[in-house]
Amino acid sequence: MSATNKDMVWVFAEQSDGELADVGLELLHKARTLAKKMNSEVSAVLLGHEVEALTSTLIAHGADNVYLLDDKELKDFRSLPYANLITKLVEEKRPRVVLFGATHIGRDIAPRVASHTRSGLTADCTELKIETLTIRKVEHEDLLLQIRPAFGGNIIATIISPDVAIQMATIREGVMEMGEPDSKRKGKVIPVPVALDPVEIAVKIIEKHQEPSGVNLKGAPIIVAGGYGADTPEKFQLIKDLAKVLGAEVAGSRAVVDAGLIDSERQVGQTGTTVRPKLYIAIGISGAIQHRAGMQESQKIIAINNDPEAPIFGVAHYGITGNLEEVLPKLIAAYKSQLH
């Protein structure tokens, strides 16, 4: 790789109906840290139709350059045109690092781009770092350490792609911090011509339905979450009662989603939403890494579990050992008494 290439860290700036996905902005913030270590700039790649207005937001959030691919065929996301255009740009410019949100869209196209360019790609990373590593006496500069829980969340694996030029990763929404935008930042918008073959746009969108979710876990200051230990409607009602008293959002681990007690959009964890509220109350949640990955950055964590050995206590600030049927009514009563 050439030492003069200053354009080595890229972020796919996902947008839908002219609205940027938070995850792209979060990744730009992370990309700045990675790029600093590599002495590189940060570039955002934006595809869509009539989306030029979004470029200033991307620059404010950390992009030095925005590659803008604007065409009416790109108005709605489709795998082939999006993946092929990004592939072409990656092949031409040869960045060292390309980051995608682990969204429906990112997980759809990143594998195609990585496959065509024979790049390393790691899904659902929870942390990224740049390091120079010596492997079998060969020094590898600017390696992207792709860190993710693996094997059902029982271990943390660090993945590297030492033998290829381009290193890619997907990262779930909310995992990285967004950072404050700086409207005074300067950046370049680089329009990229869009040429598509009929074969690339042969898949047609017949219908599309999207309803903004009424749930805003990411924005909730207090979250009350239930898990395997609360997987009956009766027990879960106590969790809802507590949430109501505290003015909190209700959430849960995969166990209660699978039990049908809450919608999947309320699932916290590696395969759900990542949250960082002021207070997270984990009730009957043992604390497998998949769940912890989605909540351990909370400012304060209260864990309530009848198993004193539950791993959730390892990330909690306050631990209460006991059955939720006994603890929750007492907690509700104690909170109410302090309000008066």
């Binding site: 271990i155 792609s161 909690a316």
Partner: peptide
């Protein structure tokens, strides 16, 4: 292209508890 560099047991960040 991707190789496992290292694998660790999950270490819990010991917050004040």
């Amino acid at each position: 292209p991707t190789k496992v560099h290292k694998v660790e047991n999950v270490v819990l960040s010991g917050s004040e508890f």
